[in-house]
Computed example of a mutant assay.
Amino acid sequence: MRFPKSGLYAITKTEDKTTDQVISDVSEAIKGGIKVLQYRDKQPADAIYLAGALKELCKTHNIPLIINDDIKLAKHIGADGVHIGKDDGQISYAREILGLQAIIGVSCYDSVEQAVLAQNLAADYVAFGRFFSSSSKPQAAIAHISSLQQAKTIINIPIVAIGGILPDNGAELLDAGADLLAVIGGVFNTTPYQSTLAYQALFK
């Protein structure tokens, strides 16, 4: 499974939801046109079951499933890749465990230098953010539009923007150099199908 060059990157919202509801929400978001899904769950009750179910759902629709933080879980369920932050292990370790075909994404926050390093270590995409106020990551450091603009001139792998992104502010990030928009609450706080459709106009 290849990482998409553009589009909506949905990240699961699991708080106060049953596993069946999470699966249903993701199914609706897939119908709405997401291009990639990340399974993110900070307090999982049954991560192996839920991640495995999401893997099968994504596989059916030819959408990559990325696991947040957990390289061992990604390996266990045969996910398409993993997303790691600065404290989540080295890119080389993830590559060793998951193999050459795995998708490896790296959080670079507001650091273009970190994005260049990730690219040099054969990451498949880099992520910048947060750009706007975010209920999912309220304490995350602010990233700047200028970082996207600079990264676009020297980064040759897809650039993902994250953090408080809505249909009415996402265009600014795409214009600055983001290729994909990563969204949690904007998709999964209300009706995922309709919410996902609202983002699609940004990519046309």
Rank of each mutant, 00 (worst) to 15 (best):
Q21L: 13
T191N: 12
A178V: 02
A29H: 12
D110S: 12
I155F: 07
L98G: 05
V112D: 12
I103E: 01
D80S: 06
I23E: 11
R40D: 03
Q43M: 10
A115F: 04
D87A: 00
K42L: 01
A127S: 12
G85P: 08
T196V: 10
P167Y: 12
A53C: 11
V183H: 00
I142A: 07
I184V: 14
V106S: 06
P4K: 01
D16W: 13
F131C: 09
L54A: 06
Q119T: 10
A102C: 00
I155Y: 09
G129A: 07
A94R: 08
T18L: 15
K86G: 06
Q139V: 07
R95V: 03
T153F: 09
S24H: 04
D70L: 03
Q90S: 15
N156S: 13
S27F: 08
D88N: 04
A53Y: 07
Q149E: 03
I66L: 04
G170L: 04
I103Y: 01
A118V: 12
T19S: 13
L180F: 00
Q149Y: 06
A127T: 15
C58V: 15
E172P: 00
A201R: 00
A53T: 10
S136T: 12
I77S: 05
N68V: 12
V126P: 13
I184W: 00
Q101R: 06
E96W: 09
I34E: 06
I162Y: 02
E28P: 08
P4E: 04
K55M: 14
L37M: 01
D110Y: 11
S92Q: 15
I11C: 02
L8E: 08
A122I: 13
D41R: 02
Q194T: 11
I142M: 08
A29N: 03
Q194D: 13
P64V: 02
I155L: 14
E56I: 12
A198L: 00
K137W: 05
S136W: 12
T12P: 00
D25H: 12
Q200C: 09
L202Y: 01
T190E: 15
